[in-house]
Amino acid sequence: MSTLKLDLESYKDLLKQYIETQNEQALYRAEQFSKHSIQQNITPDEIINVHIEALLELYPDIPSNIQSSLNFLLETMISYGLAYQEYQALREKQLELQSEISVAANMQQTLLSTTKPEMSELDVGAISTPAKQMNGDYYHFVKDQEGSLGIAVADVIGKGVPAALCMSMIKYSMDSFPDSRMEPSVILEGMNRVVERNVDPSMFVTMFYGLYDPDTHEFNYSSAGHEPGFYYSAKNDSFHDIEAEGLVLGVDRSVKYEQYTQHLDVGDMVVLLTDGVTECRTGDRFIERDEISDVIHQYKHLSAQEITEQVYRHFERLQDFQLRDDFTMIILRREV
C-alpha cells in the first residue's frame, strides 16, 4: 500500500512537471512510470485513479462536470483492469505449463534413449530432433543374441505432447519383446496388436523395422505404412527407394506384414527416415525426395553420423530453422 502512495506522489510530481513545461523529458518519465507500474502489477484502472487523485490535489477547483467525466472514465476502465489481471494469471499458468513440458521432454529423452551399436561391419548414424519440445518420432537399436542388429523407426502422425505419450507406449512394447531373433514382420504384427488395443483410433502410427545380419549382410525389413527409406548402391553410385507394402499400425488387428530382403555390399547404405524429413518445405513447396538423396550423396565421404548431421543442418537451414515436424534419420553403411 505504501508503495502505491509513493507512486501517487511521484505521479503527481510528473504530471505537474508536464503540465507546466510540456516537455519531452516529462513524457519520457511517464513512460518509465508506466513500465514500473506494469512490473508492480498495477492495473489500468489504478493508474486512472491515481491520475484523478493527483489532478484533484493539484487543481482542487476542477469543474464538477470534468470531475464526473473522470469518474465515468474510471468506471469504463474497471473491466480492463480485470482483463489485465486475467492476462497476468494466464501468463503465469502458461509459464508453469512450459516448464512442466520441458521436464516431461527431459524425461522422454531419458526414456527413449538408445545406444548406437558399435559394429565393425556397420557404420551407423542417427539423428532425431523434435519440432516442438517433445518428440513424436522414435528409433531404437537392439542387438539380438545371434549378433544381428534390429533397427526400429516409428512416427506418430501428429506432434507435441499427445504424439510423445503415444511414443512412450511404443517404446515399452518394444522393450517387452524377447532378446532372441525376431523377424521384422513378426515384430510389426505384435506392435500392430498393441497399437490397435491401446491407441485412440484417431491416432496413426507408422513403423519400419529392419534386421541386419552381419554374417550374410542381408537386411530384412517390413514396413507399416512408413515413409520409404533409400538404398544406396556403391557399385552403381545410385539411390533407390526402399519400397515396402504394409498398413499403418492399429487399423486392422489381423493384418499381416510382408518381409523384404536387400543384400548390402561394401559401401552400400540404407537410409531410414520419417516424414519430417521428406515433408520439409521451402516456401510453399515440399522438397522432392531426390533433393534428400542428392544431399546425402554430397556428403557420402563422411561418416554415417556426420552425414545425418549434415543432412539435418541442410534442411534446417532450408526451412529457416523452424522444423514443422519431428525429424529422424538413420544411416547404416556396410564397412567390410
Binding site: 484502472d45 484523478i52 469518474n71 474510471l74 468506471e75 474497471i78
Partner: peptide
C-alpha cells in the same frame, strides 16, 4: 472511494 465503488458496482 471512487475506485472501490466502481469495482463493487462491476
Amino acid at each position: 472511494g471512487t475506485v472501490d465503488q466502481a469495482r463493487i458496482a462491476t
